[in-house]
């Protein structure tokens, strides 16, 4: 194909979280838990039901950007699935996207499948393209690791 079609970053992540589906589903809509789990989240407040405003300091060591963003949850089918859309912008550029999250029951755990489309723009797209996908993957991994800890701590 020409011109070269470069896909926006598509991320497929699957993670096992040690709690039942309803708890995981609820956690994904709990601002307090989200603030603790989202990597680099400095503030997160609900502005309306299922709508949030957040400040994130994210990136990788040495290359962090502060992003002001909004997030919204839609298509809620408790405890099976939801869609999270997000948009953030900061000095190094902007990040936009949406994630379809599907929760499936497993043994003593819930498998959280996440398919995200992420668009990155501005400076980070211009100079950091080779690291964007890996960074997004890492941030998603960090989020689920933290969520797992959160769930096991409160079990």
């Amino acid at each position: 194909m020409w011109p070269p079609r470069v896909r926006k970053v598509k991320l497929t992540v699957s993670h096992s979280v040690p709690a039942d589906r309803q708890r995981v589903f609820d956690a994904l809509g709990d601002p307090a838990i989200l603030r603790r789990c989202i990597p680099g989240c400095e503030s997160l407040t609900a502005t309306a039901p299922d709508a949030y405003e957040a400040t994130l300091k994210i990136g990788v060591p040495g290359i962090k950007g502060v992003y002001a963003g909004i997030a919204a949850i839609s298509d809620k089918h408790p405890p099976e699935s939801l869609t999270l859309s997000f948009e953030g912008k900061g000095g190094p550029g902007f990040v936009r996207g949406s994630a379809a999250i599907v929760l499936s029951p497993g043994e003593a755990a819930t498998r959280v499948g996440c398919e995200a489309d992420v668009q990155v723009g501005g400076l980070i797209a211009a100079v950091g393209s080779r690291l964007i996908e890996a960074t997004a993957r890492k941030l998603a991994g960090d989020f689920f690791n933290q969520l797992s800890k959160e769930m096991s701590a409160t079990t």
Partner: peptide, 21 residues
């Protein structure tokens, strides 16, 4: 703070203002 040694990773990131220690 960031540690600077040869500056071949840090300085470019700082010049782009990706890093702002």
């Amino acid at each position: 703070a960031k540690v600077l040694a040869g500056g071949h990773s840090l300085i470019p990131a700082m010049k782009l203002r990706l890093a702002q220690p």
